[in-house]
Computed example of a mutant assay.
Amino acid sequence: MIAVHAKYRGREKRRADVVERSARALEALPGVGEFEILGVEDIRTQVADAEAALTLVMALLSDGGWAIGLGIADVTEDISDGDAATQAATNAVGTRPGQVRVAVETPGASTDAADIAAAFALLAHVLHKRTYEGREATSLVRRGMNQNEAAAALGISKQAMSQRLQAAGWPAEQAGWQLALHLITRAEAAR
């Protein structure tokens, strides 16, 4: 089982409204369950699999205003106030925006949590350095458009699109995505 707990640390004044709107929007992602809203700043949910967890964490990192806890645990473990993954995610969440802390509740998994957190730190760095044009270009390609289609949608040449993707760190994001997916899948399978 995998769960995500996010704490809003952005600068918006109407925090409760931002948290509520964000939770409802993020629930639309594939494999993401209904969010539980905890107070003014916190949301948490369970996800279907490693890819859904990665998609959700990347969406939260892209926003830049969330501290994120990722919990991975055995579904059969019994805790009175919720399942182990949800509790692990809640215990893991930090306070710094853009930070992903990970708790893997399986025997011998101490390095798994550190490796997953390191992969997310690298991805957060790439996302943080991205310009508006870079976010625009990567968003189109992430949705399944090829470079020609994305260039046409933006009204730029294929060469300009390629340059935007390079400047935005798209190859690094793709490599980081694969690494994080592999690490989360491995940690979940170890349980």
Rank of each mutant, 00 (worst) to 15 (best):
D81N: 14
I37A: 10
G31M: 09
E34A: 15
T55L: 13
G71R: 00
D17G: 13
D78L: 11
G69I: 09
A48C: 03
I72Q: 06
A23K: 08
R44V: 07
L60W: 02
G64W: 04
G69R: 07
I68M: 04
W66M: 13
A16V: 06
G69P: 09
A88Y: 01
V75F: 12
G33T: 04
A85G: 10
D49H: 09
V57R: 01
F35D: 03
I37W: 04
T45W: 01
S80D: 11
A84L: 04
G82D: 01
L26R: 05
V40L: 12
A52R: 04
A84M: 03
G69N: 09
L29P: 08
Q87W: 03
V18H: 06
T45F: 00
V47F: 05
I37G: 03
S62Q: 12
W66Y: 11
D81A: 14
E77H: 10
Q46A: 12
T76E: 15
R44S: 14
A73W: 08
D81P: 02
L54G: 05
V57Y: 00
T76S: 15
T45K: 01
W66E: 11
A28M: 11
I68S: 02
E34Q: 14
S80Q: 12
E34P: 07
E20F: 10
V32G: 04
A48N: 07
S80T: 15
V32Q: 06
G82Q: 04
E77L: 13
L60G: 03
G82R: 03
V40Y: 06
